[in-house]
Design a protein around this nucleic acid. Structure first.
Lengths: 215, 215
DNA sequence: GTCTATAGATTGATAGAC
DNA sequence: GTCTATCAATCTATAGAC
């Protein structure tokens, strides 16, 4: 207790509040009260509010990226054994499944999934984007192998759209329900995963000529 | 000059700054200096910062929704003449084309598209979601006609994913480029429209069974 | 209608006791 | 390590002169 306990409590509270309200709408007082620690502790352990924000990502992301990379390698080995290329859906599953499910199972809290989702779709700060950069590269580089004939511009746009869809599946669930007045949204992670995979795989594999001349 | 001029200048500045920095990160001073008016003018014309935020939407959205509705009606009449149902891609085009292109052509500024895109994907406030609600209903109700066999839950999730993709196509363009270190993203509205339509139509029409048992 | 000046509350950060 | 008390800056909103 003491040292690590307080640090961890601050990180948990920051994760939740930054996820629900965003960086600027969350005050230090708001945050420290929620964590049950005094105001000075944030600066003592993290230096500043911004440094705390970064630390939330840096304390949770590496493990997640590692899982994605491992999944990709396993899938790639399987494909290699069968003497074929990696499929688009295998790539997407290897990366999306951990993002939606590994995170959820870790603490039971939806804090970090929501925060990561927000970072993926928020146009906000470069600081926020910095943390999701690895996912962007992982996805685009893996998909380039599987879709070598797709124009680079098209590939990058599609990864971008996929990010938007993934982020939408991860954050603002309750808010959205109440805002749109629907409670038809299931929050079960595996339902979401199935829905999301179906949508994104189809979008990513779409025939380019399909909509070349709109209207 | 005078009255309307100042009001409009404030609205323009608010549109741009709320779009680029978000609501909480934009201060009244920041905003009034950018508009070239004094600090008191915002409260004189709009009452409060929040009321100004709402007014930005209320002064720009109705015309846009009207165009979407009219496009839908035209497409529906065409389909009716040919004695067939409206297609998914016709519905999506009727709504997405104005969002991406009508907005862009209005003022040349990317302010409002960016702001709307942010509102579509931001999990933030219910206040923000309130303004995009009409689009959500317009899309989900129109698509229900075209895809009567799709489960309600699936339909709503897909509209949600579509929102994420649309929002991604509209906001944070420059930031994304610099953040990801790529300048392959074209910012031409019609290139974006074509890319987006291809992706979203495919996702919306995806075969449900495709990914029923993930892995 | 438009301004300056300022009130009143809240912010992030820190000094200093323990 | 942890706290309270407080600083200096910034915020939104408003009062009052012109």
């Amino acid at each position: 207790m003491g040292n690590l306990d307080v640090k961890e409590r601050i990180l948990d509270a920051a994760e939740t509040l930054f996820a629900c309200q965003g960086f600027h709408a969350t005050s230090m007082r708001n945050l420290t009260v929620s964590a049950g620690v005094s105001l000075a502790m944030v600066n003592y352990y993290f230096g500043s509010k911004e440094a705390l924000f970064d630390e939330v990502f840096e304390s949770r992301l590496p493990a997640l990226i590692k899982v994605c990379r491992r999944n990709l390698n396993v899938a790639r080995d399987d494909a290699h054994r069968e003497r074929r290329q990696l499929n688009v859906d295998e790539i997407l599953y290897a990366i999306i499944e951990p993002i939606l499910c590994y995170l959820e199972s870790r603490s039971g809290s939806m804090g970090f999934p929501t925060l990561l989702g927000r970072a993926m779709i928020s146009p906000m700060t470069v600081s926020e984007k910095r943390h999701v950069k690895p996912f962007f590269f992982l996805l685009s580089e893996s998909l380039r192998e599987a879709q070598p004939n797709l124009a680079e511009e098209t590939l990058l746009w599609r990864v971008r759209f996929a990010f938007g869809a993934i982020g939408s599946a991860m954050c603002g669930l309750e808010e959205e329900q109440s805002a749109f007045g629907r409670d038809d949204f299931s929050c079960d992670a595996y339902v979401r995963l199935r829905m999301l995979m179906t949508f994104v795989v189809a979008g990513m594999e779409a025939n380019v000529c399909c909509w070349s001349q709109a209207k």
